[in-house]
């Protein structure tokens, strides 16, 4: 029997409406997902804007995976397969979904966020979407598509290619480095962010944050960031090397924000950074409390764990290795993710 992998003509077709990026959860997810599915589906990437096709970093990446890419206006009129959009604000607003449906594609949509995008609900109710994807139970409980439609849903989670975030042994001869990486969205940061880090009271600690912005500087203009702080703009360093520079990934969040999955936390774990994150969100699915990081319900818990880890290099290294191991084997298992996605995309 001929398998799809041996014969591309037998593969199902996926038209991915969007474009990968190194910044932001959904677009970085796209890059890893395309890598996961390449060779298993006949994939064509359709960016929102034709000029994105000129980004050689990404066209080279797609070429290497034998993934085709084209602008919407060059898509043939009759197609079969599915159109997938992840957190693509333009997809409904600019009627890209209509173009997909007109060509014979079935639409699969994933919000990725804890809110509905503009026109999302309207288009789901109008019957434009054939399948809806959740990233986690936490997101499912909030978006709750089942409450207003009978479109089938799946939880597909979030795939991260472990080879993109290599583990490194940390230098235990100096004070520890605490930091975080996230979109520069103000709502992701707690009101007291810089004083929260400093109040942990860890001797000789350094603080590194990437994807800092002028809006965040404005939000925390009451604070004097001293020489302990390293506030890096978006993509100042490759995400992997930034995360490799952290001993502890300390990730308090804004009080009105809920993390739907926690991609940067798992990226950090893959590199060996130990996560200290708030209770709730989706973190209970990512972290074994006390073994691969800590779920903290109070400032004092962050402080207790961070101080202990800072004083005990051996415990820190052990947990750092456990983070990597757990992330690779439990959270980023390639076969498990691919199986899940191939089923979810089979409409």
């Amino acid at each position: 029997m001929t398998r799809p992998l041996d014969n591309p003509d037998l593969m199902r077709s996926l038209y991915f409406f969007g474009w990968p990026s190194r910044y932001g959860g959904a677009d970085t997810k796209a890059a890893h997902l395309l890598g996961l599915l390449a060779g298993h589906l006949k994939i064509t990437v359709v960016p929102n804007f034709p000029e994105q096709l000129e980004q050689s970093e990404w066209t080279t990446f797609l070429d290497s995976l034998q993934i085709r890419y084209t602008s919407l206006d060059r898509l043939p009129g009759n197609l079969s397969g599915v159109a997938l959009a992840l957190c693509n604000d333009q997809f409904f607003v600019r009627g890209l979904h209509r173009e997909a449906i007109k060509r014979g594609l079935k639409v699969i949509w994933s919000s990725e966020m804890m809110w509905h995008h503009q026109q999302e609900v309207q288009q789901i109710k109008a019957g434009s979407v054939s399948r809806l994807l959740y990233v986690s139970e936490v997101q499912k409980a909030t978006l709750n598509y089942e409450s207003f439609c009978d479109v089938p849903t799946r939880i597909t989670g979030n795939y991260i290619d472990p080879s993109c975030f290599p583990f490194v042994d940390r230098d235990n001869t100096r004070g520890i480095t605490i930091g975080r990486l996230s979109r520069a969205a103000e709502e992701k940061y707690p009101e007291d962010f810089p004083v929260f880090y400093e109040a942990l009271g860890i001797p000789d600690a350094r603080f590194r944050v990437m994807a800092w912005s002028s809006a965040l500087s404005q939000k925390y203009r009451w604070h004097r960031f001293d020489q302990r702080w390293d506030l890096l703009p978006v993509e100042a360093e490759p995400a992997a090397s930034f995360l490799q520079s952290l001993d502890l990934f300390v990730y308090p969040l804004g009080h009105q924000f809920t993390e739907s999955w926690g991609r940067s936390t798992v990226e950090a774990m893959l590199t060996g950074a130990i996560p200290l994150v708030p209770e709730g969100h989706n973190f209970g699915e990512l972290i074994v409390h006390g073994e691969t990081g800590f779920l903290c319900g109070d400032f004092l818990e962050y402080q207790e764990h961070a101080l202990r880890l800072s004083r005990e290099p051996a415990s820190r290294r052990k947990m750092s290795l456990a983070c990597r191991d757990h992330a690779v084997t439990e959270l980023c298992d390639t076969n498990r993710h691919r199986e899940c996605w191939l089923e979810a995309l089979d409409v």
Binding site: P190, E191, D192, V195, F196, E198, A199, H255, F299, L300, Q303
Partner: peptide
Amino acid sequence: HMLMGNPYA
């Protein structure tokens, strides 16, 4: 509670 980092202090 929201702005003091460590409220216990």
